[in-house]
Design a protein around this nucleic acid. Structure first.
Lengths: 234, 234
DNA sequence: CCGATGTTACGGTCGTCTCCGAAGCATGAT
DNA sequence: ATCATGCTTCGGAGACGACCGTAACATCGG
């Protein structure tokens, strides 16, 4: 059985404030150095290094040596999903009084951000809604489907879902939904969401905002999103 | 934003060994008394009481007074899903050497058990496979669908999915898959999985095994499962 | 080769949290 | 009313773990 000891170890690792902050910093899917993560966690590099070693040992993060730097990233999609799950529970009883004035950083996050490997925030939800509206997808809290027309649409944009479709001869693609903590609505995640997100980045439709999980929609992106999906992200 | 502080608090609560054991004991979806949970956690009632109070405050468990007993259960499906996520990560790097001889208790768990509100183990996977085989469902790691014929089949058994279908006029039901830790294969979870599980219990096809999440398939259940789904759980 | 930058190892201090004993409250039975 | 049971609160002992000095160790650029 998955011993409760192993369960407890993982949860404990994720539960320490400094480590939790570091894991959050990695939730944009990129790989960061120990120094950057130390700043994110509010601890000294030595302390951060120790934390990272433990998390690497436990399989929460993966390290990649590159010259004099060691890049750390979340070890797997499963880790990101685990964190989503914890956030879901944490969010469900948070914000006793809804803060009226949120900072500009928070505003940017609510507008558009990455959630490990896919898009979230108003952009992510708008994209999902547009696909549903046009009949290209069905999205519900428990599951989602990309319809044949949706597969075609994405293919026409050059988004390669071949790995998803080649093996099985079915045009309909089941994919994972993700409940957005700021919008409280489901959006597209999983392999399809990841492909969509990386395509937006590759095409220069969005670009990452330094030191945050937020992303900015470029002028080119605004135009492309309106043309291909008919959405305008406010 | 879902502050990292709130995240850390939840993860820390779940990470303490005694609390983790108590949460695991609640993963069968039932409500247990503080005393039972104290035994499950290997601590004295006083200690357990303190833990339970904290977890109730944080929204991990819900309490229900009934006479001189106070029944505790997982507060929501979200909590169960969070735990599944943590278990997934914990399992991914567990069992360095695959234990050859597992106890009879473990064997029963691998054969059939509940996973919060749905069925898992060989029974859960066999049920899922049978539905897929017959074209009643599509199940993948990221999402699952109960096809119209599957909805009909369950309806003919008296499984009420009305709450799921009434609002929208669609026979196809999207539902959540759950990766089985013992079988490493996805099975049916979510509302559909829950309905299936409670029906099996209500019809006496399975019954809970005392002090465990394992369930036993009754003689009546064996017959029913073979007749309706064509499966024989070994 | 030699500094600069970044990462790891060690030892001691400190705070936090778990845990149980004992006592205090409820509820229900006798 | 009185007792029994189950749960909770209180207080102190103990353990665990985080944290930061200092210092050693890699890697890279000059």
């Amino acid at each position: 059985m998955v011993s409760t000891a192993a369960f407890a170890e993982i949860a404990t690792l994720a539960g320490e404030p400094a480590r939790a902050a570091m894991l959050h910093a990695l939730m944009d899917g990129r790989a960061l150095t120990a120094g950057e993560l130390a700043r994110a966690g509010g601890v000294t590099p030595q302390t951060a290094s120790g934390h990272l070693a433990r998390m690497a040992e436990a399989g929460l993060v993966a390290v990649e040596k590159q010259g004099r730097h060691r890049y750390h990233r979340l070890a797997s999609r499963a880790v990101a999903q685990m964190m989503e799950g914890i956030m879901q529970v944490a969010a469900s009883r948070a914000v006793p009084v809804h803060r009226l004035t949120v900072g500009p950083r928070d505003a940017a996050l609510r507008r558009a951000r990455t959630c490990y490997d896919h898009l979230a925030g108003r952009l992510g939800v708008a994209l999902a809604d547009a696909l549903v509206e046009a009949g290209h997808a069905e999205i519900e809290p428990e599951a989602a489907t990309l319809m044949p027309s949706g597969v075609d649409l994405l293919a026409s944009l050059g988004i390669d879902l071949a790995g998803q479709t080649a093996a099985r001869r079915r045009a309909r693609i089941l994919c994972r939904p993700c409940l957005d903590w700021s919008e409280r609505r489901p959006h597209l995640a999983g392999a399809v969401g990841a492909a969509l997100c990386s395509h937006c980045l590759a095409e220069g439709w969005i670009r990452r905002i330094e030191g945050s999980r937020a992303v900015a929609v470029t002028r080119k992106g605004e135009e492309a999103l309106r043309r291909h999906f008919g959405i305008v992200v406010i």
